[in-house]
């Protein structure tokens, strides 16, 4: 009995320590955003009054508003376009499946094995040739269509009943009409899941924009963040404010759409 109780205690202790370690760096980030660099270095763990000063200093160092807007615009364009392209393909691969399409799908899945580092040089050369450096188009192109998103929608189309399609055809709905009017409304949660994955990947993307978004006006948040620590003596209050700004939108989405978030992660297991 005592052994069982101590095992239970150990469980809770382990979980509590793990949870604290998980949350603490984020807490520290938010608190530090409101403190002076000196306070941050002194180990202050309570909110301070320096938020507005930090904000003014940050604005003087970098065009954060522009960077936030670039990140937001690029991520929304990437998400919307890849959901449209990926969902219609996933639907097509499942609903009209035959040997040819199944084979093509397996081939497309191989693309998931290709590391980005292996293709970034040819991609950069392509973007250069097309004169697309510093554009949203360049940001979006490599992830416009990914095997993972197609796969996700193909799996969900499996649960779309054939009877609904037959009935809609008899009612005279076109094939595209069935997809738009019948499939999309039913698959809202798949769209949410796929949307979160794509949006987050785009919002957080670093290596690709580092290569193609060279003009200061086109840079996204990760690029601006990364530059804040280069060269100068680091002002930690200012830095943590910038990091907080970039993390906050994703944390809000995460807390609201937690279920879809977790589903997105495990989608590839099922």
């Amino acid at each position: 009995m005592i052994r069982r109780r101590s095992l239970k205690f150990m469980k809770y202790l382990f979980l509590t320590v793990a949870a604290l370690i998980s949350v603490f760096p984020l807490y520290w980030m938010f608190v530090s955003a409101t403190n002076t660099s000196m306070d941050v270095l002194g180990g202050k763990l309570l909110p301070g009054k320096n938020l507005i000063t930090n904000f003014k200093m940050l604005s003087a160092r970098a065009n954060v508003a522009q960077a936030m807007w670039n990140s937001l615009r690029n991520s929304i364009v990437a998400t919307v376009s890849s959901l449209i392209i990926g969902s219609i393909a996933g639907y097509g691969f499942e609903i009209y499946h035959d040997r040819g399409k199944d084979l093509l799908m397996s081939f497309l899945l191989l693309s998931m094995m290709i590391p980005f580092a292996a293709i970034m040089i040819p991609l950069f050369m392509m973007i250069g040739k097309l004169n697309l450096l510093n554009t949203t188009t360049a940001f979006v192109l490599p992830t416009l269509s990914t095997a993972f998103i197609i796969f996700l929608f193909r799996q969900s189309a499996r649960f779309f009943q054939q009877e609904i399609i037959e009935a809609a055809r008899i009612d005279g709905l076109s094939e595209l009409g069935i997809f738009v009017r019948m499939y999309i409304p039913v698959m809202r949660s798949t769209y949410a899941t796929a949307g979160i994955i794509t949006f987050m990947a785009a919002w957080n993307n670093y290596l690709w924009p580092l290569i193609i978004l060279q003009s200061p006006k086109s840079q996204t948040m990760p690029l601006v963040l990364s530059k804040l620590v280069a060269g100068y003596v680091t002002d930690y209050g200012l830095l943590m404010l910038a990091v907080s700004l970039s993390v906050l939108p994703i944390i809000v989405i995460f807390l609201i759409l937690q279920k879809n978030f977790a589903e997105g992660v495990v989608a590839s297991v099922k």
Binding site: A19, S22, V23, P25, L26, M200, L225, V247, F254
Partner: peptide, 17 residues
């Protein structure tokens, strides 16, 4: 939720933290 929260931070952001 607490244990999954780090996944919501971007790679550059948590690196800088």
């Amino acid at each position: 939720v607490a244990l999954f929260l780090p996944c919501a931070t971007s790679l550059v952001s948590y690196s800088l933290i």
